[in-house]
Amino acid sequence: MLSRIAESLFWIGRYVERAESTARILDVHVHRVLEDPWLDGASAGRELLAAMGQPADFGLSVDSRRVTETLAYDPDRPFSITGALCAARENARTARVVVSSDVWECLNVTWNDLPHTEELARRMGPHVFFRYVRERTAMLAGLVDATLARDDGWRFLVLGRSLERVDMTSRLLSSSISDHPHSQSWISLLRSCGAHEAYLRTYRRAVDASRVAEFLLLDRLFPRSVYWSLALAEQILAELDGGRGRGSPRSTVDDTARRLVGRTRTELEFHSVDDLVADMPDLLASLQSTCSTVSAEVTARYFAREAPRSWAMEVPA
């Protein structure tokens, strides 16, 4: 597979996951601000923006409208939903030859209908928009599952998705770190990951901070947990590395990205549940930095991006 195309697939995975996660997070945030009379909407909004890496200026009032504008509609930023979907579509255009027509059309239609949906959401409330994004991304995931061969192209796409999911879940957790352990917001957190029902069936008891953290970070079976995503990323990196690695299979893992993901996954796996809440700030920060390092390593190794060559004429003698 062409390196350039592989890179596009990786970023389709990342951007689509980003759009979906952001839609989930925002949906919950907006409704929480509406439903919870005791919640300070402004500070929650400020925390959310900070967790997403888009801190608001100090003087600015951060109501949920502003949060939505920034994280949902802003077309010029690749971390807003609109921006992420545009970027995903552009990458799909580049990789048009390897993504199936179903996948391409799904993304293209999603992109075509964004302005209309945004307009609708401005009249009828943002939920319309979030729901649209969730449905379309779910459809896309289904089409990826049903119509892409399990070749390297698919692997890069899923690798991008897994890394982004780790990153997004950790950002989500860090937006709630300061909440009271029994606060309503932990339920919101679960909801935004689509994990509330799964959590209840797993623990069969009331929601509290340490269990939520445990579930979202460590659960072995839930596909949006950090552990699950890391394990998937690790497996894919191993498959990509297989047959390519130079190191002996009997000694250490040669591939930096794979080593990093494996180490992080192991650290999580053997982390004591009791310390989880206390260690969380550091843990989440390190998860986020792991994601970007791994992304950079994968880029360097597989996408072999070179600065665009520009040619100069030799000056005549």
Partner: peptide
């Protein structure tokens, strides 16, 4: 077949190659 751009190709000793993940 692959859809390449100029930057995906390179020529060495008159042999053309494309840059892939392999």
């Amino acid at each position: 077949v692959e859809l390449v751009e100029g930057r995906d190709l390179s020529v060495r000793d008159n042999k053309v190659t494309m840059r892939t993940t392999e």
